[in-house]
């Protein structure tokens, strides 16, 4: 087949047998008019295995380090975005400090990332914003499976639903949360979908059978 140009509006099957796990990353990003899509040949040089962050040097970072000398492990900047890595039991005091003393009064988001191979498998991420300084900072911490981090609802009310979603998707239970229930999935659902071992086609078969009356939702 002579590779007629198709507008690659949506991912369509690769024209030639490119093979591999990733047959179709290119065409949507490339210039559409000329070169016929070549199978993934020129891969960029191998990236470093860790994030190439640089130290975050600012007054706030120094203040935080002075205030929490033992609890903050790293203050870094990556692509102009500042973040700090702290011990899990210090998160609430750091959020409180940032809110009351440094004007970070808007908790943008709480989320988690699952790294099953690490001993402390979940990375909890709090994204904060300061209206007064127009700045963002991310507070990160790593926790092991089964560790119950303290809830941030006492500091920011918005943490309520955000923590419920983290619980729903990752199974991280927040200690002291006023209403820790599943939020997007049904109450009786078994399993936590955003954990890495949860396959994309996996589902709670029993729930689907009992509640939807079908054998499988797939």
């Amino acid at each position: 087949m002579a590779d007629e140009q198709k507008p690659a509006g949506s991912p369509s099957p690769a024209p030639s047998g490119a093979g591999g796990v990733n047959p179709k990353a290119g065409p949507a990003a490339g210039a559409p008019k000329t070169a016929p899509p070549k199978p993934a040949a020129a891969a960029p040089p191998k990236p470093p295995a860790i994030m190439a962050a640089t130290p975050w040097d600012s007054e706030l970072a120094r203040d935080l380090r002075d205030r929490f000398p033992d609890q903050i492990g790293e203050t870094s900047t990556y692509l102009g975005q500042d973040f700090l890595i702290a011990k899990p039991d210090a998160i609430i005091s750091i959020l409180e400090y940032l809110k009351l003393e440094a004007d970070f009064d808007y908790l943008v988001d709480i989320t988690a990332v699952d790294w099953p191979k690490k001993p402390e498998r979940f990375e909890l991420v709090y994204i904060l914003y300061s209206f007064a300084h127009n700045r963002r900072v991310r507070v990160k911490t790593s926790i092991a499976d089964g560790y119950r981090p303290a809830s941030a609802v006492g500091v920011h009310l918005t943490a309520n639903w955000l923590e419920r979603e983290v619980y729903d998707m990752f199974g991280i239970e927040f200690a002291g949360h006023p209403d820790l229930r599943r939020i997007l999935l049904p109450e009786e659902w078994q399993g936590f979908p955003l954990r890495k071992e949860y396959s994309i086609v996996q589902q709670d078969e029993r729930w689907v059978r009992e509640n939807l009356g079908i054998e499988s939702g797939q």
Partner: peptide, 18 residues
């Protein structure tokens, strides 16, 4: 279109963009 490789493989890292 900016110069973006055909196979998008960003370096290890994380961003928050809003």
């Amino acid at each position: 279109m900016a110069k973006v490789p055909k196979v998008i493989k960003p370096p290890v890292g994380e961003v928050y963009v809003s």
